[in-house]
Simulated assay, not measured.
Amino acid sequence: MKIDKSYELPFPPDRVFAAWVCPETVIPPATRMEINPTVGGHYRLFMESEDRCNRAEGLFFAVEPDRHVRYTWEWDRDGEITEIDVLFEPADDGTALHIRHTGFRKTESRDMHDSGWDSYVEKLSALLEKDGETASN
């Protein structure tokens, strides 16, 4: 099972890509990230609270600055290792973002990630907008 999503973001591809692979770009409910965005590099995304710590982690297979990343995703070592392929393409008004997330074994997992991508991209766009306002002030 897979997810195919496309979004239009009003920011140039280099900015969207940089935010995607930056350890400071932490979108709630995530609380912190460790990332080495190189081929063979590892990342960990943490969701921490007072009573627990969940994490997603994986390895990068492809990293083409400002254009493309491909990496694995595993939630809390649940055994379902999926693959995420993201393209950052120039568009008239910014970036055409294409996400393909494959390898789901459970419909429930796929559906949760499907809505999760919408939320993530919406919050990423809001963060980039806020950073743009800060940079221009």
Rank of each mutant, 00 (worst) to 15 (best):
R44T: 06
Y7R: 06
T102E: 13
M47R: 07
E48F: 00
R100N: 01
F60L: 08
E48Y: 00
R15C: 08
S49N: 13
T38A: 14
I27N: 05
T31K: 05
D118G: 14
P23Y: 08
A96E: 13
E24N: 09
Y7N: 07
V26A: 07
D93W: 03
S115H: 12
L97I: 08
T82V: 07
R70E: 14
P29R: 01
L87E: 12
A56T: 03
E50Q: 11
S115R: 12
M112T: 04
I84V: 15
V21N: 07
A135H: 06
T25N: 10
R67I: 04
V16E: 14
K5T: 00
L127N: 07
E64N: 07
D131H: 04
E34N: 06
N36C: 12
W75D: 04
D85K: 01
D131N: 12
W73D: 15
W75I: 00
S115T: 14
E74G: 01
G79D: 11
I81V: 15
M112V: 11
F11A: 01
S115N: 04
D114V: 00
K130D: 15
E24L: 03
E34F: 05
E64C: 02
D131V: 03
S125K: 06
T25G: 03
D76M: 08
A56N: 03
D131W: 14
L59C: 09
T38S: 14
P12A: 11
D4Y: 07
P23T: 08
F60R: 07
T38V: 15
I27G: 00
E129F: 13
E8C: 02
F60S: 10
P90C: 07
S119E: 14
T25M: 13
R55M: 11
L9S: 03
D4C: 06
D85F: 02
H98M: 12
P65Y: 09
A91R: 11
E108N: 06
D92E: 14
N54V: 04
K2L: 07
H98P: 05
S109E: 13
E57Q: 12
D14E: 15
H98N: 08
P29F: 12
D85C: 02
W20E: 10
T134L: 13
D66T: 14
